[in-house]
Design a protein around this nucleic acid. Structure first.
Length: 787
DNA sequence: ACTCGTAGCCTTTTT
DNA sequence: GGCTACGAGT
């Protein structure tokens, strides 16, 4: 029975899965069967007599938790194992022990919008001018503080750089405001929990005892707060099993600290480390590319990716004239591949750096009537109509919630304007009242205009009626809210196009459906309302991703972590986009960007295309410069699809959807030889006479990057190693040399560094004036002899 | 108090 | 290209 599922595991997987007591670190490369190991391990633990109630497994996303739960259920059926996200777990704890950290039990959870609104108020209240930092930056800084457990109190006694000074001034005000509203933001959820565990020994011991076996997934993405939480749960029972991959650490900007992985060895000297290096997901071609890329990270322990699969297709690097062409071609490819019947829509994942990049590809897919699901962007619960209604529920749940009140008080518009709210707020401030109580007193003492008083009365009456049914079914509560507020009438009055209003109606229905579903699944000891609000606050959009829908998936690289697709397209691999412009100053951040691309690449099972466009529609960004990461990839191992020199208009004519076929005259297997007309074009000139020390020659030099005169797509595969490997004298590339780069044109070498296969040259290009550094073994340079 | 128009601002990535 | 915040008009 035990052996049934253990037998499916390889040796190291089994070692990890059968480890019971004591600290364990599983370093699991992409596609190495990590989730399977975790679920098998839990199953094994239960089979070995460990009570499921003593086991907790923490993930970052609900999606990951669900995946794990369903796979565990396949093995052992429903169990009492605590399986959930960090945030979900922490909220549960905080609900129970709210008072220990100074929170009301019915605290509300603020999403980014609410938190930002509150921060704005706090900034106003603090009387500091924000001439320099935009509010968003401020919010990020505060978030960063919180993730590192820097409380306002600590901040007081700290010396701040001028950069941090402003944040230091505003942060305490913001935190006070949250407290007054009886609310927490996302970061508070972790920070308060860490505080709770740190300052309550007894409770800590209790929980340590209760959760004797702790599993943490994606450990490389834990921040200090999460580290502290986990650490405090694993003192008396140090049975912590962390799984992760430092190469997939992509949340440093959110305070995640890869060093937490290394700290495990410090904290637990008897740590058992298991490495899962066999990759069952991707073809060797894809893994080679991934490996070449990630090796460029200096700050990294070498790690191998061992391909378990048979060779497949080469990875493709596609170059497009415009972002539009990129989108259209990718869509064409998907049409072609699905029509051939080899792939289904659900096999495709289209990944990009920022949400904004989804637009063009969405258009392209829409026009071809390819169904897709877009992950990220705006979440369901962030929609205006949803938030409007939720504001009432939040207020009913927690009367202190000033942000919710301000949203609800005049939606739908009932004549309570800014001015009135200001008066109420100032009255509340003076008397130390919540906004809601201030409202009541203002009505009672008739302190406002008659009109405002009447409106306020009706608002308060709605509120009171809702409160009276708060313990009933959630569905009723929502429906009564809609009725009493006249929300539907309000919507129909709005001048929205038919399409939009039907969208909104659908959203409302969906909300009601969700509510009635929660009514059914809510546990006895829990308030349906509270549960609902938690779900609304903590459910990310990625969680709604449904792998059973047979549609193409679009999402950011971040959201793609943990997923896999047969065919992956990574769009806009361009300088200032994939190494994002804002991450280039700092080498740490740059490496994180590299890991991000690594994550993208390793999502692919069978086919992978990386692409960039020479021009990308809107202003400034991504001026068509390929990502420096692409320079780190061996062209010899890739297929180049260059669509830049063809006439895009011609290609783009309406009924030209077969263009993709037309322009792939060369099949995968036929591409080893170079046509005669192209030989003169060979990008690399070889000096046959020159004797080289062997280390000056690398396999990667045996490459050919070709492009036909007509500019038609030329496919090259560098597997023809036997075909007289040409030798190039790297010594020829010296400072002052004039060279030509296949993608950037002519330039001058301004510096060289390194030796042997690592030798690289810095080139200043004449056209752009930019300097870039290339590893010579990875780039095809032509030496230009000035005649 | 609300609606409509425009100018300036953006733009990472997410629980 | 898209949204938001702010301002003038009703």
């Amino acid at each position: 029975m035990d052996s049934q599922y253990l037998a499916q595991l390889n040796e190291s997987q089994r070692a990890a899965a059968t480890h019971l007591d004591g600290p364990l670190l599983v370093v699991a490369g992409p596609g190495s069967g990590k989730t399977r190991v975790i679920t098998c391990r839990i199953a094994h633990m239960i089979a070995s007599g460990i009570s499921p109630a003593n086991i907790i497994a923490l993930t970052f996303t609900n999606k990951a938790a669900q995946e794990m739960r369903s796979r565990l259920e396949q093995l052992v059926g429903p169990s009492q194992v605590w399986l959930g996200t960090f945030h979900g777990f922490c909220v549960r704890l905080l609900r129970r022990y709210a008072r220990l950290v100074g929170l009301p039990e019915h605290f509300n959870i603020y999403d980014a919008d609410d938190a930002l609104a509150l921060l704005k108020e706090a900034v106003k209240a603090s009387d500091f001018e924000l001439t320099h930092a935009p509010i968003g930056v401020l919010a990020n800084r505060i978030s960063y503080f919180k993730n590192r457990l820097v409380t306002p109190e600590i901040l007081e006694s700290a010396t701040l750089s001028s950069d941090e000074y402003q944040v230091g001034q505003v942060y305490p005000f913001y935190q006070q405001a949250l407290l007054r509203c009886g609310a927490v933001d996302f970061d508070d959820i972790l920070m308060h929990t860490a505080t709770l565990l740190r300052s309550n020994q007894e409770l800590r011991q209790q929980l340590d005892e209760r959760f004797r076996y702790v599993l943490v997934d994606e450990y490389q993405d834990t921040n200090l707060a999460q580290y502290v939480i986990v650490r405090h749960l694993c003192v008396d029972h140090p049975n912590l099993a962390a799984t992760g991959d430092p190469d997939q650490s992509i949340y440093g900007w959110r305070g995640a600290n890869v060093k937490n992985v290394a700290h495990l060895e410090r904290d637990y000297p008897d740590l058992t480390v298991v490495r899962l290096q066999d990759n069952y997901r991707s073809t060797p071609e894809i893994l080679t590319i991934a490996d070449c890329l990630i090796q460029n990270n200096e700050n990294r322990k070498p790690k191998e990716l061992l391909a378990a699969r048979q060779p497949g297709n080469p990875v493709r690097l596609a170059i497009y004239p415009t972002a539009r062409a990129e989108a259209e071609d990718v869509a064409d490819q998907i049409v072609a591949l699905t029509e051939q019947g080899d792939f289904h829509p659900k096999d495709f994942g289209i990944l990009y750096r920022t949400n904004a990049h989804s637009r063009l590809i969405e258009h392209a897919l829409l026009r071809r009537q390819i169904e897709y699901q877009l992950i990220g962007g705006f979440r369901f619960f962030l929609r205006k109509e949803i938030k409007d209604l939720l504001a009432y529920l939040l207020l009913v749940h927690n009367p202190e919630d000033g942000i919710a009140l301000q949203r609800a008080i005049n939606t739908p518009p009932r004549g309570i304007g800014k001015k009135t709210v200001e008066q109420i707020a100032s009255y509340a401030g003076k008397h130390g009242l919540s906004l809601l109580d201030a409202c009541r007193q203002c009505v009672q003492f008739a302190m406002l205009s008659k009109r405002a008083t009447t409106s306020l009365k009706s608002f308060l009456s709605i509120y009171d009626q809702l409160c009276s049914i708060v313990h009933g079914p959630l569905l009723d509560l929502l429906q009564v809210t809609i009725e009493l507020t006249g929300y539907r009438e309000h919507l129909s009055k709005q001048k929205t196009s038919g399409e939009e209003s039907s969208d909104i109606a659908t959203n409302l229905d969906e909300l009601l459906a969700e509510a009635s579903e929660l009514d059914r699944e809510v546990r006895e000891d829990q308030s349906a309302l509270e549960y609902f609000l938690e779900v609304a606050a903590l459910q990310a959009d990625t969680d709604k991703l449904k792998s059973d829908r047979n549609v193409v998936t679009l999402m950011t690289l971040h959201a793609a972590k943990g997923l896999e697709f047969s065919c992956v397209y990574v769009l806009a691999v361009e300088e200032n986009i994939l190494p994002h412009a804002r991450s280039k100053e700092d080498s740490q951040q740059l490496e994180e960007e590299r890991r991000l691309l690594f994550v993208g690449i390793t999502r692919a099972k069978d086919q992978l295309q990386l692409s960039y466009a020479k021009s990308r529609g809107f202003s400034g960004q991504g001026s068509g410069v390929p990502s420096s990461f692409l320079m780190e990839l061996p062209r010899s191992e890739m297929q180049i699809l260059d669509k830049t020199e063809s006439s895009y208009d011609e290609y783009h004519d309406d009924d030209s959807q077969d263009q993709y076929f037309d322009r792939r005259p060369v099949e995968w297997d036929e591409v080893s030889q170079v046509g005669p007309e192209e030989q003169g074009d060979l990008a690399v000139q070889f000096d046959e006479d020159c004797q080289l020390p062997p280390e000056e020659i690398t396999a990667s030099m045996r490459k050919r990057l070709g492009r036909s005169a007509s500019g038609r797509a030329i496919l090259r595969v560098g597997s023809d190693f036997e075909a007289s490997p040409p030798r190039m004298n790297m010594a020829l590339f010296q400072k002052g040399c004039l060279v030509s780069h296949p993608e950037f044109g002519s330039g001058e070498i301004t510096a060289t560094s390194g030796h042997g296969p690592k030798k690289s040259a810095t080139i200043r290009f004449f056209s752009s004036g930019d300097s870039r550094t290339f590893r010579l073994s990875h780039v095809s340079l032509t030496i230009e002899h000035p005649e």
